Measured scan of single mutants.
Amino acid sequence: MPSETPQAEVGPTGCPHRSGPHSAKGSLEKGSPEDKEAKEPLWIRPDAPSRCTWQLGRPASESPHHHTAPAKSPKILPDILKKIGDTPMVRINKIGKKFGLKCELLAKCEFFNAGGSVKDRISLRMIEDAERDGTLKPGDTIIEPTSGNTGIGLALAAAVRGYRCIIVMPEKMSSEKVDVLRALGAEIVRTPTNARFDSPESHVGVAWRLKNEIPNSHILDQYRNASNPLAHYDTTADEILQQCDGKLDMLVASVGTGGTITGIARKLKEKCPGCRIIGVDPEGSILAEPEELNQTEQTTYEVEGIGYDFIPTVLDRTVVDKWFKSNDEEAFTFARMLIAQEGLLCGGSAGSTVAVAVKAAQELQEGQRCVVILPDSVRNYMTKFLSDRWMLQKGFLKEEDLTEKKPWWWHLRVQELGLSAPLTVLPTITCGHTIEILREKGFDQAPVVDEAGVILGMVTLGNMLSSLLAGKVQPSDQVGKVIYKQFKQIRLTDTLGRLSHILEMDHFALVV
């Protein structure tokens, strides 16, 4: 994948999101292997301009796509893939009243899908469409860049269908997702969380590099694949309309690839034109409109599966009536509230959605109805927002919020430890010299600072030695090549209790 991002070429006709291997024109390309080798690009942008032909009021008969309808489940399912879809609609009884809503608040519980998330729908649909058009064949390999849930859905379907599955996901995604993927037989590649989507090191860039190296491999490409919004247009939206008897006044959905909100909203605009569509985008993402909503100094966020630093091709923002931004604290607070007060075992993005819903639905009156999409299960986040310690460490809970008995030293300040200034190293000294210094002084790690004293990161003896043994660096290389740029900081005025929580999850903390 090139470091400079080429513009994806656009073909003359058809839909841009065809499933299957992508040609340089962004659509299915038939021909000899030699032709494909000559024409197939190194990668295709996940934010390529959409060429979708959908228009409100256009006859369904003019759609270029294969459409399906929700099917009634048999008493005995032939395999677990038949437990994807037909998820329950559940009334939220307490939270709406707590925040003064007059309307009825309903939750579409997508964590009841077989793999635990709304992404099971698009995973199965992308595979079925690729099999139907002859792209996927027995023994082929599926590769997908994902925040985890699409990966789980694909790995689940691949396990049943017999495909090899490789999932490329950023490091910030939970260990629970990784464990589930491994249990399903998927191979996992992790990428830096802070890598831009168009960087060769991003999950998108690495996935395309693997595709170019592995024979008979395919990126189904949830960011561009029409099967993504079509899955929701054909099934999720129809289920909502049936469950609500066609009567709903507002739908609120958090947005990642945009397939969920695009597919549902398009069908609702056709069948229930008075329904307002509300999009939820986390602070630090750029999906919301108008652009002024996205202006923030924050560039990272903890909530998973929603928000991006690019506009995915499948996201149709014209069908969203209003956007709201959400933050991590309210997302996790509301997710825990949904679990504790409503018994809905949902993930953090569901918290984002409901946090926005109780604001947006203030305009609705008694007798009206708001539906929220709860995308995934708490299963993926047992060591994250479900953990009091994690919430404390991230600053989303305060010590006084917890009532468990603490040891005698818990409320003492870090400054009472009488710490001395640490050994520091410059980023320009060599790895070999740094190892000598650390061994001589008896230290395992040291902060790396520039000549102005600005902290650049941390270097550890173990990481340097393993990097040297693996051949990633040489003793003569500058130590700046092996620094940890993500590390926890703590102030002298913070409590030892807070430091204790940090050290339970990290090997060190830097006192500043």
Rank of each mutant, 00 (worst) to 15 (best):
T135K: 10
I92C: 07
S63K: 09
G185Y: 01
I188S: 05
C244T: 05
P21E: 10
E144A: 01
V255W: 02
D238I: 08
P2D: 13
E171A: 07
L81R: 05
V10I: 13
H65A: 00
V255K: 02
V118Y: 05
G134W: 07
F112V: 04
W54S: 06
A60P: 11
T191F: 01
A253Y: 05
E110F: 01
P12T: 09
T193V: 14
S50P: 10
D249I: 00
C103K: 00
L210G: 05
C52P: 02
T191I: 01
P170M: 04
V206E: 06
T13M: 08
G185N: 01
W43T: 07
R182L: 10
D140W: 04
D234A: 14
L77M: 13
A183V: 06
P59Q: 09
V168S: 04
K102W: 05
E128R: 03
M89R: 06
G162F: 05
V90D: 05
R209L: 08
S61V: 03
L241P: 01
K211Q: 13
S123F: 05
C109N: 06
T5C: 08
V160M: 09
S174C: 02
E176S: 09
E131R: 02
G31K: 12
Y163D: 00
G31H: 09
P145C: 06
N228W: 00
I92V: 14
K25T: 08
R58V: 09
R266V: 11
F99M: 13
G148K: 02
L181M: 07
L184H: 02
G115N: 07
G148Q: 01
R18L: 09
I76T: 03
D140S: 11
A231I: 10
Q222V: 02
D35W: 03
K30T: 10
I84N: 07
S123H: 06
P2E: 14
D129S: 11
L106A: 10
R276E: 06
T141G: 06
I167K: 08
K36I: 12
S217M: 01
K82I: 10
A265P: 07
P41C: 12
W208D: 12
S61N: 03
S3N: 14
G148I: 00
L28Q: 10
H17T: 11
V180A: 10
W208M: 12
S63F: 15
N228G: 02
N149F: 00
R91L: 04
N113I: 03
K83F: 11
I80R: 06
K271E: 15
G259P: 00
A186C: 04
K82G: 10
Y223H: 00
T150A: 02
E104T: 03
H232G: 02
I44M: 12
R18F: 08
S19L: 05
S27N: 14
S174V: 00
R266K: 14
P74R: 08
P49S: 15
C244H: 05
A69M: 08
L77H: 03
E131I: 03
K75A: 15
L42P: 09
T236E: 04
L105T: 05
K267F: 11
R209M: 08
D120H: 05
L251K: 03
A69L: 02
L248S: 02
L56I: 13
N194G: 02
A130E: 03
M173E: 01
S32P: 10
E128W: 08
T141Y: 07
A158D: 02
E34K: 12
G115I: 06
K211H: 04
I92D: 04
N93A: 08
T135N: 15
P229T: 06
N149E: 00
D129C: 06
V206Q: 06
A24G: 12
K30Y: 10
H22D: 09
P138G: 10
P200Q: 07
H17R: 06
D140Y: 08
P170K: 02
I264P: 00
K137R: 13
P33E: 11
T5E: 09
E40L: 15
P200N: 08
P21H: 09
I240G: 00
C109M: 07
Q222A: 00
I80S: 13
G185R: 05
Y233A: 00
D238E: 11
H66C: 14
C165A: 05
E213C: 08
Q242G: 13
N228H: 03
I167Q: 07
K172M: 05
E171K: 09
H67W: 05
T5R: 09
R125Y: 08
V206A: 09
P145E: 04
I95L: 04
R224C: 12
V252M: 12
S3V: 12
G31N: 12
I264V: 15
P215C: 01
E34D: 12
